[in-house]
Structure formats: C-alpha cells, structure tokens
Amino acid sequence: MNLVTFSGPPSSGKTSVILKTIKALKERGLKVGVVKFDALSTDDDILYEKAGVPVRKGLSGALCPDHYFVSNIEEVVEWGKGEGLDLLITESAGLCNRCSPYIKEIKAICVLDNLSGINTPKKIGPMLKMADIAIITKGDIVSQAEREVFASRVNMVNPGAIVMHVNGLNGQGAFELSTLLYEKEEKIDSLKGKKLRFSMPAALCSYCLGETRIGESYQMGNVRKIDMNGKGQK
C-alpha cells in the first residue's frame, strides 16, 4: 500500500482535488481509500462515500487536530491495509497554518488556493515548506498574472516542491497529479519508528487544560506575552 498525506488551509479545495484525483486513479484499476481528519465536524466523508471511496473520519474535538493525527496514524494505516487498498490518502484539517502532519519518506501534498492572497505562502509554515508537491486551486477565476505571481511566491518558500495547478471543479490537472501519487514498488507496512518532518508547536498552558477565565493570575504553563512596543511592531 502507498500512503499520501494531503493538507492545506480550510476551504482550499483539498476534498475536491482528492476526489477528482481518485477518479483518475480508479481508471487505472487502483483501490484508493481516504481518512479525513477534522476538528468539530465534517461531511466530506459523505462525498467520498458517494464516489464509492472507502472512507473513515477522525474528529479531534477538543484536541489539536494535527496532534490527534499523529497519535492515530498507525491505526489509520492498519485500517487501509485491512481494506486492501493500493493507496491510502489522509486529508488533514489544516487549521493553524503552522503545523503539518507530514511524515518523513511519506509523500506530502499541500493544497492552496489562488484566492487566499499572494502573501499566504509566506504565512504558511511547514505545511507548505515541507511539502513535496504544492497544488494550487481555483485558477479558473483569477487572472493569468495572479496565477503566475502566486506560483512564484509558493516557489520562493519551497523551491524543491513540484508546483501544479489543479481545478477541483472540472478536474483539470487531476489526471496529471494522479500520475505522481502511486508507485508500484512502494510498500508501507507500518509507520512505527518513522518521524514527523517538523515538530508540532509547543503548547500546554492553563487554557489547554480547560481554563476559561481571563486574567494574568489564571495563566500558567507555557504562556507568552505580546511585546506591544518591541521589534517587529510598527
């Protein structure tokens, strides 16, 4: 079985891109399944089901979705093997722009959209910088110039990545992407011992533990203050 991790900001088009790509993979006779991670709720599993794609969803609830992802990825792989998949795709929630649940030696794809603005690539951390492939969506509604500028910004923060344009609505580019996702020789049996490409952000303050009151005396643990007059302020 092959494993590919997809992530990207909310509403960037991950599910549409994956669905269109799976369609092309199925035409090659490959069995593809998806595990969708999200925070509070997702209906994407229904979309996958409708398309005849074996799917499981994981809702992290009160936990950070990417922490939740790493703690569960082994079970996810077990499920994929049990289903007899050729390719297992995980789709992340992609919430805070810093994290990326990418694993070393496992193909990592980041989906971004042209509408998010040209300053977005530099605002996104390892989720984009550590990806092997950057997919740019919604190119059909912006000008050629904006597409070129956006792609060049993506290239600047991750020159090693393949940058591709995929249209999640009409599937333009999805076939091409599908050719990069599956390699016959590759066999993922277990992820035990593999490492994340980048550490997750440090946390654990009183608010992580359920505190709701505001005020310095309630703040404990890993707390940091804004320097209102320091460097980096206007």
Binding site: G117, I118, G139, D140, I141, V142, S143, Q144, E146, R147
Partner: peptide, 10 residues
C-alpha cells in the same frame, strides 16, 4: 490561460 470567467482579485 485566458478564459471568460477570470477576474482580478487583488
């Protein structure tokens, strides 16, 4: 590409 429904968004 130049198509009918393209806009400037910046």
């Amino acid at each position: 590409q130049l198509s009918q429904n393209m806009n400037f968004v910046m």
